[in-house]
Protein backbone atom coordinates (compact mmCIF):
# COMPACT_ATOMS: atom_id res chain seq x y z
CA UNK A 1 0.00 0.00 0.00
CA UNK A 2 1.26 3.46 -0.82
CA UNK A 3 1.43 5.87 2.09
CA UNK A 4 -1.33 8.46 2.16
CA UNK A 5 0.43 10.77 4.59
CA UNK A 6 4.20 10.66 4.25
CA UNK A 7 6.45 12.82 6.39
CA UNK A 8 10.09 12.21 5.58
CA UNK A 9 12.93 13.37 7.83
CA UNK A 10 11.00 16.50 8.81
CA UNK A 11 12.46 19.18 11.06
CA UNK A 12 10.35 22.18 12.00
CA UNK A 13 11.21 25.27 14.01
CA UNK A 14 8.48 27.83 14.70
CA UNK A 15 9.41 31.32 13.60
CA UNK A 16 8.35 32.65 16.99
CA UNK A 17 10.25 29.99 19.02
CA UNK A 18 12.55 32.07 21.19
CA UNK A 19 15.06 29.36 22.06
CA UNK A 20 15.26 28.11 18.46
CA UNK A 21 14.68 24.52 19.60
CA UNK A 22 12.87 22.59 16.86
CA UNK A 23 9.34 21.43 17.68
CA UNK A 24 9.98 18.23 15.72
CA UNK A 25 13.29 16.89 14.47
CA UNK A 26 14.11 14.20 11.88
CA UNK A 27 10.58 12.95 12.10
CA UNK A 28 9.53 10.23 9.68
CA UNK A 29 5.99 8.92 9.56
CA UNK A 30 3.97 6.97 7.00
CA UNK A 31 0.25 6.44 7.27
CA UNK A 32 -1.72 4.36 4.78
CA UNK A 33 -4.97 5.28 3.14
CA UNK A 34 -7.95 4.42 5.32
CA UNK A 35 -5.76 3.72 8.31
CA UNK A 36 -6.60 4.88 11.83
CA UNK A 37 -3.32 6.13 13.27
CA UNK A 38 -2.82 7.38 16.80
CA UNK A 39 0.04 9.52 17.97
CA UNK A 40 0.88 9.53 21.64
CA UNK A 41 3.66 11.23 23.53
CA UNK A 42 4.55 13.36 26.52
CA UNK A 43 3.01 16.82 26.54
CA UNK A 44 4.78 19.39 24.45
CA UNK A 45 6.29 16.79 22.17
CA UNK A 46 5.17 18.44 18.94
CA UNK A 47 2.04 16.38 18.28
CA UNK A 48 0.09 19.43 17.28
CA UNK A 49 2.97 20.57 15.08
CA UNK A 50 2.74 17.25 13.31
CA UNK A 51 -0.93 17.89 12.64
CA UNK A 52 -0.21 21.33 11.25
CA UNK A 53 2.53 19.94 9.02
CA UNK A 54 0.28 17.21 7.64
CA UNK A 55 -2.52 19.65 6.82
CA UNK A 56 -0.32 22.32 5.29
CA UNK A 57 -0.92 24.90 7.99
CA UNK A 58 2.83 24.91 8.61
CA UNK A 59 5.66 24.01 6.25
CA UNK A 60 8.75 22.13 7.41
CA UNK A 61 12.11 23.81 7.58
CA UNK A 62 13.73 20.58 6.43
CA UNK A 63 12.41 17.35 4.96
CA UNK A 64 9.33 16.71 2.87
CA UNK A 65 5.63 16.23 3.52
CA UNK A 66 3.50 14.37 0.99
CA UNK A 67 -0.26 13.94 1.35
CA UNK A 68 -2.21 11.90 -1.17
CA UNK A 69 0.85 11.65 -3.42
CA UNK A 70 1.40 15.40 -3.64
CA UNK A 71 3.95 17.53 -1.85
CA UNK A 72 2.25 19.87 0.60
CA UNK A 73 2.82 23.50 -0.33
CA UNK A 74 -0.49 25.00 0.78
CA UNK A 75 -3.31 23.99 3.13
CA UNK A 76 -4.35 20.57 1.81
CA UNK A 77 -8.12 21.29 1.45
CA UNK A 78 -9.02 17.63 1.85
CA UNK A 79 -8.73 17.57 5.63
CA UNK A 80 -11.29 17.81 8.38
CA UNK A 81 -10.20 18.83 11.86
CA UNK A 82 -11.54 18.55 15.38
CA UNK A 83 -9.91 19.84 18.54
CA UNK A 84 -10.29 19.49 22.28
CA UNK A 85 -12.20 22.76 22.17
CA UNK A 86 -15.25 22.20 19.91
CA UNK A 87 -15.01 25.80 18.54
CA UNK A 88 -18.64 26.01 17.48
CA UNK A 89 -19.77 29.47 16.38
CA UNK A 90 -22.35 30.64 18.94
CA UNK A 91 -24.38 32.72 16.48
CA UNK A 92 -25.08 29.75 14.23
CA UNK A 93 -27.34 26.82 15.00
CA UNK A 94 -25.63 23.47 15.32
CA UNK A 95 -26.79 22.55 11.83
CA UNK A 96 -25.40 25.76 10.33
CA UNK A 97 -22.15 25.17 12.19
CA UNK A 98 -21.89 21.75 10.60
CA UNK A 99 -22.58 23.21 7.16
CA UNK A 100 -19.81 25.83 7.57
CA UNK A 101 -17.06 23.85 5.78
CA UNK A 102 -19.33 23.60 2.73
CA UNK A 103 -19.34 27.38 2.50
CA UNK A 104 -15.56 27.20 2.05
CA UNK A 105 -14.70 24.04 0.13
CA UNK A 106 -15.24 23.68 -3.60
CA UNK A 107 -17.25 22.21 -5.28
CA UNK A 108 -19.77 22.47 -2.42
CA UNK A 109 -19.25 26.19 -2.01
CA UNK A 110 -20.66 26.89 -5.46
CA UNK A 111 -23.63 24.56 -5.18
CA UNK A 112 -24.58 24.94 -1.51
CA UNK A 113 -27.25 27.56 -2.06
CA UNK A 114 -29.05 25.71 -4.81
CA UNK A 115 -28.76 22.25 -3.24
CA UNK A 116 -29.31 23.25 0.36
CA UNK A 117 -31.87 20.51 1.07
CA UNK A 118 -29.50 17.78 -0.05
CA UNK A 119 -26.71 19.06 2.21
CA UNK A 120 -29.03 19.57 5.15
CA UNK A 121 -30.19 15.96 4.77
CA UNK A 122 -26.57 14.87 4.80
CA UNK A 123 -25.87 16.86 7.94
CA UNK A 124 -28.94 15.39 9.61
CA UNK A 125 -27.66 11.95 8.67
CA UNK A 126 -24.32 12.66 10.32
CA UNK A 127 -26.04 14.03 13.41
CA UNK A 128 -28.00 10.81 13.64
CA UNK A 129 -24.79 8.76 13.35
CA UNK A 130 -23.24 10.56 16.31
CA UNK A 131 -26.41 10.32 18.39
CA UNK A 132 -27.66 13.89 17.98
CA UNK A 133 -30.73 13.19 15.88
CA UNK A 134 -33.06 16.19 15.68
CA UNK A 135 -30.77 18.48 17.69
CA UNK A 136 -29.56 20.50 14.69
CA UNK A 137 -31.83 23.49 15.31
CA UNK A 138 -30.32 24.11 18.76
CA UNK A 139 -27.54 26.58 19.32
CA UNK A 140 -24.24 25.02 20.36
CA UNK A 141 -24.38 26.67 23.76
CA UNK A 142 -27.63 24.82 24.42
CA UNK A 143 -25.72 21.53 24.09
CA UNK A 144 -23.53 19.81 26.67
CA UNK A 145 -19.77 19.58 26.14
CA UNK A 146 -20.02 16.02 24.87
CA UNK A 147 -22.80 16.93 22.45
CA UNK A 148 -20.82 19.90 21.15
CA UNK A 149 -17.87 17.60 20.55
CA UNK A 150 -20.14 15.23 18.58
CA UNK A 151 -21.32 18.16 16.49
CA UNK A 152 -17.71 19.18 15.98
CA UNK A 153 -17.02 15.69 14.57
CA UNK A 154 -19.93 16.14 12.17
CA UNK A 155 -18.48 19.46 11.04
CA UNK A 156 -15.12 17.78 10.45
CA UNK A 157 -16.78 15.12 8.27
CA UNK A 158 -19.50 16.98 6.35
CA UNK A 159 -17.36 17.66 3.28
CA UNK A 160 -16.23 14.02 3.11
CA UNK A 161 -12.57 14.72 3.83
CA UNK A 162 -10.03 12.11 2.88
CA UNK A 163 -8.05 12.91 5.99
CA UNK A 164 -9.44 13.52 9.46
CA UNK A 165 -7.21 15.16 12.04
CA UNK A 166 -8.23 14.82 15.68
CA UNK A 167 -6.25 16.77 18.26
CA UNK A 168 -7.20 15.37 21.69
CA UNK A 169 -10.86 15.65 20.75
CA UNK A 170 -12.10 13.88 23.87
CA UNK A 171 -9.59 15.37 26.31
CA UNK A 172 -12.05 17.64 28.10
CA UNK A 173 -14.85 15.08 28.54
CA UNK A 174 -15.73 12.85 31.46
CA UNK A 175 -14.70 9.21 31.10
CA UNK A 176 -18.18 7.82 30.35
CA UNK A 177 -18.84 10.36 27.60
CA UNK A 178 -15.35 9.75 26.31
CA UNK A 179 -15.92 5.99 25.95
CA UNK A 180 -19.23 6.65 24.25
CA UNK A 181 -17.48 8.90 21.76
CA UNK A 182 -14.76 6.30 21.18
CA UNK A 183 -17.51 4.04 19.89
CA UNK A 184 -18.97 6.86 17.78
CA UNK A 185 -15.52 7.44 16.31
CA UNK A 186 -15.00 3.71 15.70
CA UNK A 187 -18.30 3.48 13.82
CA UNK A 188 -17.65 6.64 11.81
CA UNK A 189 -14.27 5.26 10.73
CA UNK A 190 -15.84 1.97 9.74
CA UNK A 191 -18.58 3.72 7.77
CA UNK A 192 -16.60 6.47 6.04
CA UNK A 193 -13.28 4.77 5.18
CA UNK A 194 -11.47 7.99 5.98
CA UNK A 195 -7.80 8.17 6.99
CA UNK A 196 -7.64 9.35 10.58
CA UNK A 197 -4.76 10.76 12.60
CA UNK A 198 -5.62 10.98 16.26
CA UNK A 199 -3.33 12.88 18.58
CA UNK A 200 -3.94 11.98 22.20
CA UNK A 201 -2.56 11.70 25.72
CA UNK A 202 -4.86 8.81 26.50
CA UNK A 203 -3.13 5.49 25.86
CA UNK A 204 -6.33 3.46 26.29
CA UNK A 205 -8.01 5.65 23.72
CA UNK A 206 -5.16 5.07 21.26
CA UNK A 207 -5.13 1.33 21.90
CA UNK A 208 -8.89 0.98 21.50
CA UNK A 209 -9.27 3.03 18.34
CA UNK A 210 -6.08 2.81 16.30
CA UNK A 211 -4.66 0.38 13.75
CA UNK A 212 -1.21 1.69 14.46
CA UNK A 213 0.21 3.74 17.32
CA UNK A 214 3.23 6.02 17.06
CA UNK A 215 5.03 7.11 20.22
CA UNK A 216 6.79 10.46 20.09
CA UNK A 217 9.75 11.61 22.13
CA UNK A 218 9.83 14.81 24.15
CA UNK A 219 10.67 18.02 22.31
CA UNK A 220 12.22 18.06 19.79
CA UNK A 221 9.72 15.39 18.79
CA UNK A 222 10.41 12.36 16.65
CA UNK A 223 8.91 8.87 16.47
CA UNK A 224 10.55 6.54 19.00
CA UNK A 225 8.27 3.54 18.67
CA UNK A 226 5.65 2.24 16.27
CA UNK A 227 3.18 -0.42 17.26
CA UNK A 228 0.57 -2.30 15.20
CA UNK A 229 -2.66 -2.95 17.04
CA UNK A 230 -3.97 -6.36 16.00
CA UNK A 231 -7.32 -6.49 17.80
CA UNK A 232 -9.94 -7.52 15.24
CA UNK A 233 -12.62 -5.01 14.20
CA UNK A 234 -15.30 -4.17 15.07
CA UNK A 235 -13.94 -3.80 18.57
CA UNK A 236 -16.13 -3.87 21.62
CA UNK A 237 -15.45 -1.74 24.70
CA UNK A 238 -15.08 -5.04 26.57
CA UNK A 239 -11.67 -5.61 24.98
CA UNK A 240 -10.31 -2.72 27.02
CA UNK A 241 -10.55 -5.02 30.05
CA UNK A 242 -8.70 -7.92 28.43
CA UNK A 243 -5.14 -8.84 29.52
CA UNK A 244 -3.82 -8.28 25.96
CA UNK A 245 -5.19 -4.75 26.01
CA UNK A 246 -3.65 -4.02 29.39
CA UNK A 247 -0.33 -5.39 28.20
CA UNK A 248 -0.42 -3.11 25.17
CA UNK A 249 -1.25 -0.04 27.26
CA UNK A 250 1.48 -0.98 29.69
CA UNK A 251 4.00 -1.31 26.87
CA UNK A 252 3.01 2.09 25.45
CA UNK A 253 3.32 3.61 28.87
CA UNK A 254 6.87 2.27 29.02
CA UNK A 255 7.75 4.09 25.79
CA UNK A 256 6.29 7.37 27.03
CA UNK A 257 8.01 7.07 30.40
CA UNK A 258 11.30 6.48 28.63
CA UNK A 259 10.70 9.48 26.36
CA UNK A 260 9.99 11.64 29.39
CA UNK A 261 13.16 10.48 31.15
CA UNK A 262 15.25 11.18 28.07
CA UNK A 263 14.01 14.76 28.03
Amino acid sequence: MKPFVDLHDVTHVYARAEDGVPAVKNLTLRIHEGEFAAIVGPSGCGKSTLMKLATGLQFPREGTVFVDGRQVEAPVKLAGMAFQNPTMLPWRTTLDNILLPLEIVEPHRGRLRRNKAEYVAKAEGLLEQVGLKGQGHKYPWQLSGGMQQRASLCRALIHEPKLLMLDEPFGALDSFTREELWCVMRDLHAAQKVTIILVTHDLREAAFLADRIFCMSARPGRIVAEREVAFPRPRDLEITYSPEFSALVHELRGHIAQARRAA
Binding site: L57, M81, N85, L100
Partner: peptide, 10 residues
Protein backbone atom coordinates in the same frame (compact mmCIF):
# COMPACT_ATOMS: atom_id res chain seq x y z
CA UNK B 1 -8.39 26.56 16.39
CA UNK B 2 -11.29 28.00 14.43
CA UNK B 3 -8.82 29.62 12.07
CA UNK B 4 -7.00 26.29 11.65
CA UNK B 5 -10.24 24.44 10.91
CA UNK B 6 -11.10 26.89 8.15
CA UNK B 7 -7.59 27.29 6.76
CA UNK B 8 -7.21 23.54 6.48
CA UNK B 9 -10.29 23.66 4.25
CA UNK B 10 -8.56 26.19 2.01
Amino acid sequence: EMEDVLRALG
